[in-house]
Simulated assay, not measured.
Amino acid sequence: MIRFRLKELMADKGFRESRRVTLDEVSKATGIHRTTLSKIANQRGYNTTTEILDKLCEYFEVPLEQVAQYLDQSKSEG
């Protein structure tokens, strides 16, 4: 399963800049609809496009592996 780290990235950016980063702000800066960002942040297993991942990488200035990570569910099942 792919896990998106949007909430963590927003918190990290907010901490670095000593302010609160909101989904609305990310939406306006990237052109990604706020509803899509909310689904990425809150819905397990949400499926998105490479275009959106590219925009998030650019906005947060991080490589893809910091936006999304692969979780091997077979290891967690026991």
Rank of each mutant, 00 (worst) to 15 (best):
M1K: 13
F60Q: 07
E8H: 04
G14C: 12
K75N: 10
I2G: 01
T35C: 05
R20L: 10
Y59D: 03
E58A: 05
Q43F: 02
K75E: 09
Q73D: 04
T35I: 14
R3T: 05
F4T: 02
E51L: 05
R5E: 14
E65K: 14
D24C: 05
E77A: 11
A41D: 04
V62W: 07
R19H: 06
F4P: 07
Q69K: 04
G78L: 14
H33W: 07
D12S: 15
E61R: 07
L6C: 07
E61S: 15
L64Q: 10
K13H: 12
D54R: 06
E17G: 08
K7V: 12
A41S: 13
P63S: 06
F4C: 03
Q73P: 13
V26R: 01
F60D: 08
E61Y: 07
V26S: 07
Y70I: 13
R44W: 10
T35K: 11
C57L: 00
L37C: 05
N42R: 06
R20F: 15
L56M: 06
T30D: 01
A11D: 13
S27R: 10
Y70C: 03
I40S: 05
T49F: 00
T22M: 00
E8F: 10
I32D: 07
K28V: 05
F4R: 00
G14P: 02
V21Y: 01
G45E: 14
D24S: 13
Y70Q: 02
A41I: 03
R16S: 06
Q66M: 08
I2E: 13
Q43Y: 02
M10G: 03
A29T: 04
N47E: 11
E61P: 13
Q69H: 09
L64K: 03
L23K: 05
A11H: 05
G78P: 06
T35E: 08
K28S: 09
L56H: 01
V62Y: 02
L6E: 11
G31T: 06
Y59G: 06
A29M: 00
L64E: 08
